[in-house]
Simulated assay, not measured.
Amino acid sequence: MTIPELEQWFKSVELPAAPLYLNPATKINDVNYFLESHFSPLRDTPITSINQPLLDRLLAFKLLIESNL
């Protein structure tokens, strides 16, 4: 899945209400801010070891949403 496809996927689903935990160490207080702060660097720079964690968290969030549908 490409970054634009992933971004479109998030636009097409109902986002859960915050606050929520992505994992025991990651609390999302503002879902829209979380998405924008993760997609913004990924739009500007291809996947590198520096921004790989951003993609990993987005994919984990997608999995969390899918598991609750």
Results as ranks from 00 to 15, higher is better:
Pro46Cys: 03
Thr48Asp: 05
Leu63Phe: 00
Asn32Phe: 01
Glu5Ile: 03
Asp56Lys: 14
Arg57Tyr: 03
Ile3Val: 15
Glu7Met: 09
Ser67Glu: 14
Ala25Leu: 12
Ile3Asn: 07
Tyr33Lys: 15
Pro16Glu: 05
Ala60Gln: 15
Leu59Tyr: 00
Ser37Ala: 12
Leu58Gln: 09
Asp44Val: 00
Pro16Cys: 03
Glu5Tyr: 00
Val13Pro: 05
Glu66Phe: 03
Ile28Cys: 02
Leu63His: 13
Ala25Ser: 13
Leu54Asn: 15
Tyr33Ser: 13
Lys27Leu: 14
Ser49Trp: 03
Glu14Ser: 14
Leu15Pro: 08
Pro16Leu: 12
Met1Lys: 11
Asp30Phe: 01
Asp44Lys: 15
Phe61Pro: 02
Tyr33Met: 11
Val31Gly: 07
Leu35Lys: 03
Glu36Cys: 03
Phe10Glu: 07
Pro16Ser: 05
Arg43His: 13
Glu5Trp: 03
Glu5Arg: 10
Tyr21Ala: 11
Pro46Ser: 12
Leu63Thr: 15
Asn51Pro: 04
Phe10Cys: 00
Gln8Ser: 14
Ile47Leu: 15
Asn29His: 09
Ser49Cys: 04
Phe39Asn: 01
Val13Ala: 05
Ile28Gln: 05
Ile47Asn: 03
Phe10Ser: 07
Ser12Arg: 11
Ser40Phe: 10
Leu59His: 07
Thr48Ala: 07
Ala18Cys: 12
Phe61His: 00
Thr2Phe: 05
Thr45Ser: 10
Asn23Cys: 05
Glu14Ile: 12
Thr48His: 06
Ser37Thr: 12
Leu55Asp: 06
Ile28Leu: 07
Leu64Gln: 12
Leu6Gln: 04
Phe39Gly: 02
Leu6Asp: 05
Ile28Asn: 00
Phe39Val: 04
Glu66Leu: 07
Leu20Ala: 04
Leu59Asp: 09
Leu15His: 09
Ala18Gln: 02
Val13Ser: 02
Ala60Glu: 15
Lys27Ala: 10
Leu35Asp: 02
Met1Val: 12
Ala18Trp: 08
Thr2Glu: 11
Pro19His: 08
His38Thr: 09
Lys62Pro: 04
Ala18Lys: 05
Pro16His: 02
Glu14Arg: 15
Arg57Val: 06
Leu20Tyr: 04
Trp9Leu: 04
Leu59Arg: 14
Leu54Met: 10
Phe34Pro: 01
Tyr21Asp: 03
Ser40Ile: 01
Leu22Thr: 08
Glu14Cys: 09
Leu59Val: 14
Asn32His: 14
Leu63Gln: 15
Ala25Ile: 11
Tyr21Asn: 09
Val31Met: 11
Val13Met: 06
Pro24Gly: 02
Phe34Arg: 06
Lys62Ile: 01
His38Trp: 07
Leu64Val: 03
Arg43Lys: 14
Phe10Ala: 01
Ile65Arg: 08
Ser67Lys: 13
Ala25Gln: 14
Leu54Cys: 10
Leu22Pro: 04
Val31Lys: 00
Trp9Ile: 06
Pro53Ile: 09
Glu66Arg: 10
Ile47Gln: 11
Asp56Ala: 13
His38Leu: 06
Leu63Tyr: 02
Val13Thr: 08
Leu55Phe: 08
Leu15Gln: 06
Met1Gln: 11
Pro19Arg: 09
Gln52Ala: 15
Leu15Val: 07
Pro41Tyr: 03
Lys27Ile: 08
Asp44Ser: 13
Phe39Trp: 07
Asp30Thr: 08
Ile3Glu: 02
Leu58Arg: 08
Lys11Cys: 11
Ala17Asn: 10
Leu55Thr: 10
Ile50Glu: 13
Ser12Cys: 01
Glu5His: 10
Ser12Met: 07
Ala60Ser: 13
Asn23Arg: 11
Tyr21Lys: 14
